[in-house]
Design a protein around this nucleic acid. Sequence first.
DNA 1: GTCTATAATTTGATAGAC
DNA 2: GTCTATCAAATTATAGAC
Lengths: 171, 171
Amino acid sequence: MTRTADAIMDAAERRIRVGGYGGFSFREVAADIGVKSASVHYHFPTKDDLAAAVARRYTDRFTQAVANKIAAGTKVDVAWRDVFRRSLAEDGRMCLCGILGASAHGLSEQVAAEVRRFFRSGLEGLEAGGLGKEEALRFLAMLEGSMLVASVLGDQALFDAASAPAAAAAA
Amino acid sequence: MTRTADAIMDAAERRIRVGGYGGFSFREVAADIGVKSASVHYHFPTKDDLAAAVARRYTDRFTQAVANKIAAGTKVDVAWRDVFRRSLAEDGRMCLCGILGASAHGLSEQVAAEVRRFFRSGLEGLEAGGLGKEEALRFLAMLEGSMLVASVLGDQALFDAASAPAAAAAA
DNA sequence: GTCTATAATTTGATAGAC
DNA sequence: GTCTATCAAATTATAGAC
């Protein structure tokens, strides 16, 4: 069954969003969902396997959420901002791949590749939505930076203020 | 003497910029500069003490570098961008407080306070230089996000592209 | 698929000699 | 101020019973 594997990824994602890659352990994740660490190793042999799986699922989930909004008629840049905004509102923490990416140079290639995938697919999606290459780059950077500042200073309104005007200016 | 303490902070700063707070240990830092971990504990009793000291020194050093540029006639936003840019060019890694701030929720209050200090003093400095409150916020977010994207994708030119137009638009 | 048990290593931190 | 030695705990990971 994938139910346990999903629960493991849920717990790991929560922990990574608090303390980064170095901020979670197999025992903590196992305890979070009421199993033993050996069971976590059964589903994800190594820590890198788990972190990479979490990052991959995050990217897919994020991409899908954005696609749904676009299908409903939302403009691509507004869709991206909305999805980030809702995630930030839920727990006050920033993008999972932004957190992992901040210490990208200390990650294994396996995990770093998944983080790069998130950023690359983000840029591709924004360009496919009509933004210019540099415009997409600036927009994604602005969103990540806005989440970072809002997360550090603990004020979600800062994300709104930092990202709202740029969103209006784009496209 | 503060010579050893400085060397310890240098090594710790390098390590944190690679792997974040969870990515360095007393033994590694000690080995980097050729002493034993007990000596590191002599200068910085706990890991939080060391990380907080590194973040504090980083903020002071950064503020000074910006102030020097402004005194030489550079506009405040250009000065900030230049200092970040040079730091990124040196080793391809982003702002120390941006890295720590990404997992701010997992830091001790002691370290988190120093990270907040960097961002707050940044906003204050940009406002003192003539930027509006929201303008300063957007500019700082844009710089941090640009460094993040450039660092993750391993291409410094992305920082230039992402931050250049906004710098021209500001002030 | 989950468990107990454990190996092997690393971690933050301290005591005390020099 | 730096060292040796050490502690207690946590870490990733594996072997094997159920």
